[in-house]
Design a protein around this nucleic acid. Structure first.
Length: 403
RNA sequence: GAGGAUGUAGCUCAGCUGGCAGAGCGAGGGAUUGUGGAUCCCUAUGUCGCGGGUUCGACCCCCGUCAUCCUCCCCA
């Protein structure tokens, strides 16, 4: 009988990794609180059609990366590949936009994409992200970018912010046409770009192949084609970023993969890997049947951020060690320490003091509190510093909290 | 979905043109019944990823399969 193993691309996260994971989500959650976001907890399964209509039918995510299945009633369902679609669906379904002047929602949870796993890319991965619905002012774009900037600062990760504007339905078609015209006559593009040039010409711009980069050096730039509205929006955003000293790199070739983006797009990139990305999507709500509603959002890849999170979290551990028949006293001591907020392990395993201290050591305890019959008689505890080996008798546990 | 590398003890890895399965770390125990970590001694590590094939004989060669890592495609 072969042992059952985890499914390909579905990883277990535990010990130090789980701590990192929570450290990241807690950091974002605290910022969401400061920026007045509300949490929204959504299902992991939706009708497949939702993603077809939001993410975009021609995207790879929809065409080849979704976990799609039929349930017992022949409904065609999908594990969510991203978070925005579900948020928008929910907002429309519950008429939330009619109840509040605007919405600021954040979410956190697993996403699923059927891809070949590699580092920073799993089939089940986790995102934390947010959506602001009902605000079209670039100040909102700025605020969520600032929130991300704050997050990476708190996480102590040096990262590059890239921004761009990809226009709107007024100006983008003109640009697209200009770009297609330009690409039409280029020869020597890579195989992928040959396909992309008509299917999704914007993607040719961020091809990694050197010859493609070289060949498209003179390609027209979206920024030159922005309509007045989009152009002003982009300029204001930059003004806000500048005035707050948020460093960014303008990347006119930054294109996001999902169909719904308009105007502002941005990515936080570390060593060529996108850790967080987002942008504005002013038409998605309407296209999914809701009222015309401008929106901006982002999503951060938690596992990807974990790759660059180096800090160690050290919290003192008190090992309460008892000898012979002092168990009850030890239980009481452990209880008091816990009530005072200390992290405590009562060492019940191990038959003698030597063993118990060995175990305390292996657990990584910073202090051991030793309680034996002699101490009980004298009314003291032995406090041993596990790093320095020094130990002292203390009469009162309060002494632990004064220093 | 395409290309490449790798699967041997809990972990990191040796293993000769094909001839008895190995080391280090870690784990458990110990002369010491009240003092741990870098010492010493002892002990156990196992479906050599899985399934076929070739062979007197396969960890080693061949085919398939699964998984991991890397590069693409794409994306957080």
């Amino acid at each position: 009988m072969e042992n059952i193993k985890a499914i390909r691309g579905f990883d277990d996260i535990f010990f130090e990794e789980a701590k990192k994971f929570r450290y990241i989500t807690n950091t974002f959650r605290e910022l969401f609180r400061l920026y007045n976001f509300e949490e929204i907890i959504l299902p992991i399964v939706e009708y497949k059609e939702l993603f077809d209509r939001s993410v975009g039918e021609i995207t790879d995510i929809v065409q080849k990366e979704m976990f799609v299945f039929e349930d017992k009633s022949k409904r065609v369902l999908a594990l969510r590949p991203e978070g925005t679609a579900g948020v928008v669906r929910s907002v429309i379904e519950h008429g939330m936009l009619y109840k509040k002047p605007f919405l600021k929602l954040f979410y956190e949870g697993p996403m699923f994409r059927y891809e070949r796993p590699q580092s920073g890319r799993k089939r089940q991965f986790h995102q934390i992200g947010c959506e602001v619905l009902g605000l079209d002012n670039p100040i909102t774009d700025f605020e969520i970018i600032k929130l991300c900037f704050d997050a990476f600062k708190k996480l102590n990760i040096d990262i590059t912010l890239e921004i761009n504007s990809i226009g709107c339905p007024v100006c983008r078609p003109k640009y697209r046409e200009a770009l297609t015209n330009y690409l039409k006559d280029i020869e020597g593009l890579c195989k992928d770009c040959e396909e992309r040039r008509f299917k999704n010409p914007l993607r040719v711009l961020d091809c990694k192949v050197e010859t493609c980069k070289e060949l498209t050096k003179e390609a027209p730039v979206m920024l030159d084609y922005l309509c007045e509205n989009c152009s002003n929006h982009y300029k204001s955003l930059k003004t806000y970023l500048d005035s707050f000293g948020v460093p960014y790199k303008e990347n006119p070739r930054l294109v996001r993969g999902l169909d719904y983006y308009t105007k502002t797009v941005f990515e936080f990139i570390k060593d060529g890997l996108t850790l967080l990305a987002g942008g504005r999507y002013d038409n998605l709500v309407e296209s999914l049947g809701g009222p015309k509603t401008p929106a901006v959002g982002f999503a951060a890849g938690i596992e990807r951020i974990m790759l660059f999170l180096k800090s160690e979290y050290k919290e003192d551990l008190y090992a309460v060690v008892y000898i012979e028949n002092t168990v009850v006293e030890a239980l009481k001591v452990a209880n008091i320490l816990r009530e005072k907020g200390k992290r405590v392990e009562l060492v019940s395993k191990g038959s003698n003091l030597k063993k118990k201290l060995e175990i305390a050591d292996k657990l990584g305890a910073s202090y051991a509190l030793i309680i034996g019959p002699e101490e009980l008689k004298k009314g003291v505890y032995i406090l041993k510093n596990m790093n320095t080996k020094e130990q002292q008798e203390i009469e009162n546990l309060e002494q632990l909290f004064s220093t």
